[in-house]
Design a protein around this nucleic acid. Structure first.
Lengths: 225, 225
DNA sequence: CCATGGCGTTCTCTCAGGCGAAACGATGCT
DNA sequence: AGCATCGTTTCGCCTGAGAGAACGCCATGG
């Protein structure tokens, strides 16, 4: 039977995803350690990545992400949403709840925070726009997994609208409520999430927030082609 | 001898680069036509691209760029330059010359406009931030090719500082002056370019602009690690 | 001075796995 | 019904990707 996937391509992509905000430049040996690939393999793959401008190499031989990625990133953003749609909704949600509002999409087995509006009263707690996190078992992770086609063994965290409300997932002090956003054509676009210190998420407050998030998600979905 | 490069990886990358601002979503058949690859090949490769979140597929089967690209794009930008360095220099150059200033980097056999400040008097003429263009034979293309290691057959367009001043290259009415930017460590970072209607680029004006661009490039280089 | 170790690069052999033709099934258009 | 277009699957052939070691090149230091 023909291969379902392509090994060398996935290895090349694992090289790309080895880079992070904290480590934007790596030597060959570092990349090998990070990816578990043989150095010769990395050399071969990065040569091809470099030809297409997906990876650069400086004079000291260190690798970094190439400009083609940036160009493609802009294509992604303009196709997905320029921010003109999502950001106002997030801001409104912050006003309504006083908490932090974010919009996540799935990227492979991770989730990426596309947009985020921070609560005015709460200092940031680690998540920023563009950040990449494991899907995990948090509220937004569950939403992303369910509505991007995964079959989950347990659907009890979800209410009838597909919303998940959880305490203390990624961060032990943080509660979050996440709901799916569907475009007007019914396609799943991402997870709209409100999160904050769980000390403020009492039962009644939580109910109000949940309604707010679901209302915002509906509104947002209408605006997304 | 071992393969210098990896064919399947380059095919996968050619799929990614097939997307553009104008065509951010494509069907399988369109992708096949655009890349020249067999449909079965595209299916196999895109499966792997999707696993890593580099490509998405909507419910109607159309492909689009995935969120992993966006995440990597932010890594690229924060590593390369957040814009805090380059943009002020561009603005100053616009003030000095009254023309449009841009900063290009190389991405494979293309050039990408990372930053651009448009002349206040001239309407835009097609190039925008994030745009991808062939390297070609324009001023910035020549600079990028020479200082990213290519051996050019003819170096007469370059002055002693590596600057190129040309008329009517990409656009028959546009003249441009481009000079390399080197970081304080001597590494080549990109091409700083001033361009505008060639009717305004008289000999004396051109000399002044050239000095301005070179001065800005030196200043910019100092600030770039 | 020459070990020693870490680094990037190159080579070669082998076999997994990528390739593409072709067939298939679904949908839509006339 | 008939034809065209599209996406998907299958499968045998053979290329080309991968592992691993060897090589050369600095450093560092004993």
């Amino acid at each position: 039977m023909g291969a379902e996937r392509t090994e060398s391509v996935e290895r090349a992509l694992s090289i790309l995803t080895a880079f992070s905000i904290r480590r934007p430049r790596m030597t060959l040996a570092e990349l090998a350690a990070e990816t578990g690939l043989h150095k010769s393999t990395i050399l071969r793959l990065t040569r091809s990545l470099a030809v297409y401008g997906f990876i650069d190499r400086d004079t000291e031989g260190r690798f970094s992400v190439g400009a083609s990625i940036w160009h493609l990133g802009l294509i992604f953003r303009q196709d997905f949403d320029t921010g003109e749609t999502i950001r106002p909704v997030l801001r409104e949600l912050v006003q309504l709840t006083g908490e932090t509002a974010s919009f996540f999409v799935r990227a492979g087995s991770d989730r990426v925070c596309l947009y985020r509006e921070n609560s005015p009263i709460l200092e940031k707690y680690g998540v920023e726009e563009g950040m990449r996190l494991r899907l995990g078992t948090g509220a937004s992770g569950l939403v992303l997994r369910r509505y991007s086609g995964e079959v989950l063994p347990d659907l009890t965290p979800f209410n009838a609208n597909g919303t998940v409300s959880l305490d203390a997932t990624r961060n032990p002090n943080i509660a979050s409520i996440s709901t799916p956003v569907f475009s007007s054509t019914g396609a799943f676009r991402g997870a709209l999430t409100v999160s904050g210190l769980n000390s403020r998420f009492t039962a009644s407050v939580r109910d109000r927030f949940l309604a707010d998030v679901e209302a915002s998600a509906r509104k947002l979905g209408q605006q997304m082609g």
